[in-house]
Design a protein around this nucleic acid. Sequence first.
DNA 1: CGGGTATACATAATTTTGTTATGTATTGGT
DNA 2: ACCAATACATAACAAAATTATGTATACCCG
Lengths: 110, 110
Amino acid sequence: MNKSTLYKGCLEPIIMRLLKDNGRMYGYQITQMVKEITKGELQITEGALYPLLHRLEEQGVVETEMENIGNRIRKYYTLTKAGKKQTSVAMDELKMFMQSLNLIVNPKLA
Amino acid sequence: MNKSTLYKGCLEPIIMRLLKDNGRMYGYQITQMVKEITKGELQITEGALYPLLHRLEEQGVVETEMENIGNRIRKYYTLTKAGKKQTSVAMDELKMFMQSLNLIVNPKLA
DNA sequence: CGGGTATACATAATTTTGTTATGTATTGGT
DNA sequence: ACCAATACATAACAAAATTATGTATACCCG
């Protein structure tokens, strides 16, 4: 009965959205921002995030830059041009989905 | 790029919600009602629905009755008492999740 | 009357995707 | 010295959906 499983399927568009808004982000930063924005409701696990980011890179949705912060490495992700287009589409779909969810959860509005 | 994959993880609460609203439903009816309510946006596949219903029955969330319609059989599902309680919890979680999604997709409201 | 579509169930093989666990390594506070 | 936070990564596993398939009745159309 773990509520966190709800976002299965939505994780990808969520990440894409954050990247679109913030331009350039690294993985850990994404997990923290999601936690912050949702007041701790959504917690993205690293085991879900990193493989997803790698997949998006393979697909040409994002591109990466490494940056050294002191002796520590950060891997920054940015949406490619194609990735931005895909994000727009994904956002439309996500919004439609949210409306659909709403219609089901809130049938009185029908 | 199938938008339908978005509801992965939300299917169970969606079904529970419909059962709570409509009292007694059969599988095919559920697929049709979801399609109708969401104007064709959400299409639940049978391969996802039936195993889910069976799981819910095993877990004591729903109980079933067979009914003969002509020569055809319908299997009706109803929430058990425990199932109704779980549905309330699931709805709270789903609403929280929807709010979280909103915060991410609609950051301007922050 | 034959064929396609809708109704209505079910399940198996496969794929996708997330959880859990683990590993490495730096940084900073106490 | 030690623990928590930062920051990456990946492997083993589990859950849950897709896709494909199967069975069977009912109904409409040409």
